[in-house]
Amino acid sequence: MSRIPGRDYRQQLAEEEPWRQQFPYHWDADEAVTRREFVRFAVLTSGALFVGTVVLGILGKLDSRKRTKRQLIMKVGELEPGHAKYFHYPNSGDQAMILRLNDGSYAAYSQKCTHLSCAVYYQPKENTLHCPCHEGYFDPVTGEPTAGPPQRRLPRITVEEQGGNLYATEMNP
């Protein structure tokens, strides 16, 4: 578009390009975010983060109720030292394991790896708990991660002996 000397350029544009009459906005104004809009968006984002934190609190309370359950695992002495038995706790879909450590004591954990939820297995020769998916290792006595990608310990299951039987009573994530 050539500019005609002596004539108002804006007026000329408006006549030669009719769409400017229908959308008469400066293109900076079309994309501009005002400070007020920015603050409103920031407060909305802040509210969303707050709601997320509250939801985690509620989920934490709900989970703590679900984790307490008494369930028979096996008879005392059924497991030799250095062996493990796999069972389901607290629900039928949750895999768990009880270990008879070399000193004769028992330790029970969720079998779900705290990295990406693969199944963890007891390896008595190496005296370790091994997650084969990403080579994660846990201490069988404490459940703490010793090598590999896991950062959190395995959820521990409280075991109680009563009447010659072993019971799982509580899951402590």
Binding site: V43, S46, G47, L49, F50, G52, T53, V54, L56, G57, L59, G60, K61, D63, S64, R67, T114, R152, P155, N172, P173
Partner: peptide, 30 residues
């Protein structure tokens, strides 16, 4: 950051009021 700390507490199964303290701080900002 408060949300990530709350997530960490939740995954660790902390049943104390830690998450609610974080939620309170977050609420103050809102």
């Amino acid at each position: 950051w408060l949300l990530t700390v709350a997530l960490e507490l939740y995954l660790n199964g902390n049943d104390d009021n830690g998450i609610w303290v974080l939620a309170g701080l977050s609420g103050l900002v809102v």
